[in-house]
Design a protein around this nucleic acid. Structure first.
Lengths: 419, 419
DNA sequence: ATAAGTTTGTGCGAAGTACAAACTAACTGC
DNA sequence: GCAGTTAGTTTGTACTTCGCACAAACTTAT
């Protein structure tokens, strides 16, 4: 399947990319900003402002960005003509009269985003509208120990099925994958439990088959992006997403952009050390955060304390049983949330992002777990005047956030907000 | 003392600042890039390329930045006319003939940078040339428990003495200070051992007295900037500076810019937790990194192990005694460097910067200490294919790096490399 | 010695961008 | 009906980068 049509205005995908490539070839470490790139950057920022703040008039956007109204007109007019944006009905003027503003927002029928969630053994693909709605979900399974060609066949078939439901060419395809991902080079390095994926240059493969921009990143980073574009991180310039479950992970949104680290390796928090010479971790080291704040620890402690059905214990059940009056559950919940808090404390001491969105098991514990973690973090962090730490839970289902995040990866790279 | 003259080309100080202020007033979180800002940004990047790569011809710079040669000419010509840059002698052409290139570099007589290092009880001020040379060092002492007015008087007098030796108006004044600093608002929050500084809006005070741009940041961040502009971090896009001594601290250079965190509070690594419920820390918490990797721990262990003169033990002496055959020193050195390594490991797992510059006590241990730390980090970190971790020591004296870093703070803010 | 080839650096016009001023459109309040 | 206010557009200006052409300065081959 191939898509040809592209919007008349460049969103900066081509030019800066080729520029960077050129600079890369000559080994340069500086990149000047060209005139054309400038336009793309500003177009991207206007779109992001629309995302972050919801429907806004041209005048509002101009005020928000501190630029001239005419600049905004120049930016949005081609987008309206291309039906990426639509003008809403005139909203009544608020105070002292004046011409009513016409709010702008994304066209419901604008091109969508392809999204793939890749976990050991399963593939989920879908289309995500710019407004966040999910459509055309397709699921498939693959043999984690099988043949590479077989996997590619399943992946292609699944994605083709989903993309064929799009009315127009999607902006691109975003892939969120478990495991260790090299997002710079678009390859999967290793996925525990799915050796078939080891070393797979998935971006190159999909780009070739679908002739669309393709982006890949690891699961926690997709959650982060999902939070940023469509969840509680919307509009924020600094926050972290923290995932807890069988393993621990995190991702950071710093100064308005996704932090990736070299070759996309930042945020592997599970194996930061919180207990020198502590318990043995799966990674072979001792005292990793994962040894005290992941589900295996919780199951072990639940069994030790004699809680019912310790093998299937979750934060959600712990909260429920604590709410029902179980002292043991209450105590374990407190210790669990405290252990989770230590990782967040170290993050806070390091980056001082002040805002954290929880995912995974601990998110199942809802507001109560989040509040407990917040209290522990507050106690364990060195206080600064005027500093407030917020811990929130993403209420939307886990899979949906990851899929939306995969879609958001495309937006982030497409809008090229980084210079 | 007031300075009036300013270079004819803007380096972006005024416009973006006022732009940001305007956007801030209206509560906006996006900022479009203006035409004028674009020029300032590119001018800044050309200058940074000159810093990072040493003297380069226009053609080289154009290749390095991936832009047209004429663009570089347009950027550097006014700077040459303003005597910020100078054209060197024609260097002999290297291979196939052609017109010999004229390398450009900073004019030795260009405006300098004012730098202040503020530690409890002492002030150091100096001028730093764009080439890194330090001139007109002035030192003074103040009463850490004394009167605010008295401190300001000493500070003003010291700085006036230094600045009066400048031939032209410096580009600005950079202040590196111990303690907790709010670099966004330019105030000192708290300094242990110097209560007189608590809450002092030093930037506003100095800006008013000297009519120059003033920047303040905390000590580790000044070391980072010193490394970046004039030390082992030169030309690097990602690295961290780590300070060990009576306390621990760090600062990060991420994707080509100094990371500050909200209100400049990132990098307070000393109180990240590496030992849940471990030893009591000065901060009132338990198991902070500072409890196992700072000098108080080293002194305590040296005493426990019966090493000579444990109260004045340093990493430098430990290395010397270990080199001379002391098994106890060797063993303690290994444990000390391992404990230091844990903090770097957590940083690496979080941000994956791959490159660390050591300062403070552990830097006194030279290459041997750095290599030991590197080995421990390699062992304790989760390996990624193709990932190399570098640990280096800044050979230049501590004070000089901090002063150069304070100067570099001005450059960083003046060049406005961030958009 | 001469010619050819190569590289550097500089005018000049074109294209693209944001901005300011002045304008029209649309609504409120008196 | 008219003044006041706000939204959005038109028009002209200033600034920046880019591509092309060209002179200057050097090397190499004949």
């Amino acid at each position: 399947m191939k898509f040809e049509s592209q919007p008349s205005y460049s969103l900066g995908q081509r030019t800066p990319a080729s520029r960077e490539a050129a600079a890369g070839e000559s080994g340069g470490n500086v990149t000047l900003v060209s005139q054309a790139a400038l336009g793309a950057i500003n177009r991207g920022r206007v779109l992001q402002a629309l995302y972050d703040n919801g429907p806004k008039s041209r005048a509002d956007l101009a005020r928000l960005a501190g630029v001239n109204r005419t600049t905004i007109t120049g930016i949005v007019q081609p987008m309206i003509e291309d039906q990426l944006l639509v003008e809403g009905d005139a909203s009544p003027s608020d105070v002292k009269g004046g011409k009513p503003a016409r709010p702008l927002y994304f066209n419901h029928d604008a091109p969508m985003l392809g999204a793939v969630l890749l976990l050991p053994g399963t593939i989920q693909a879908c289309l995500v509208a710019l407004t966040g709605e999910i459509k055309a979900v397709t699921k498939a399974e693959f043999d984690p120990l099988g043949d590479t060609e077989a996997f590619i066949a399943v992946m292609t078939k699944t994605l083709t099925a989903t993309l064929s439901e799009a009315q127009q060419a999607p902006f691109g395809i975003g892939v969120a994958s478990a495991g260790m991902i090299d997002s710079d080079n678009g390859t999967i390095l290793t996925v525990n439990l799915a050796p078939v994926l080891t070393g797979l240059p998935l971006v190159a493969i999909l780009q070739e088959r679908f002739s669309l921009p393709v982006v890949i990143d690891h699961h926690p980073r997709a959650l982060l992006v999902g939070d940023r574009w469509f969840g509680p991180g919307r509009g924020q310039q600094n926050f972290a997403a923290v995932y807890t479950g069988e393993v621990l992970g995190g991702a950071f949104f710093i100064d308005g952009k996704v932090y990736r680290g070299l070759a996309g390796s930042g945020g592997e928090l599970g194996h930061s050390v919180v207990q020198i010479d502590g318990a043995l971790c799966n990674c072979g080291k001792h005292g990793c955060w994962e040894t005290v704040a992941a589900l295996p620890w919780l199951r072990k402690e639940a069994a030790r304390m004699g809680l019912p059905h310790p093998k299937s214990i979750t934060c959600a059940r712990l909260v429920k049983e604590a709410d029902e009056g179980s002292n043991a559950a209450d105590e374990l919940l407190d210790r669990y949330t405290r252990n989770v808090a230590f990782g967040i404390v170290n993050l806070q001491q390091t980056l001082s992002l002040n805002s954290y969105v929880l995912h995974g098991d601990v998110a199942g514990g809802g507001v109560r777990a989040a509040e407990l973690i917040r209290q522990h973090v507050e106690q364990l962090v060195v206080k600064r005047p005027g500093q407030e730490i917020s811990i929130t839970v993403n209420g939307i289902g886990e899979g949906h956030t990851a899929l939306r995040g995969a879609a958001g990866l495309v937006l982030s790279s497409h809008l090229k907000l980084v210079i």
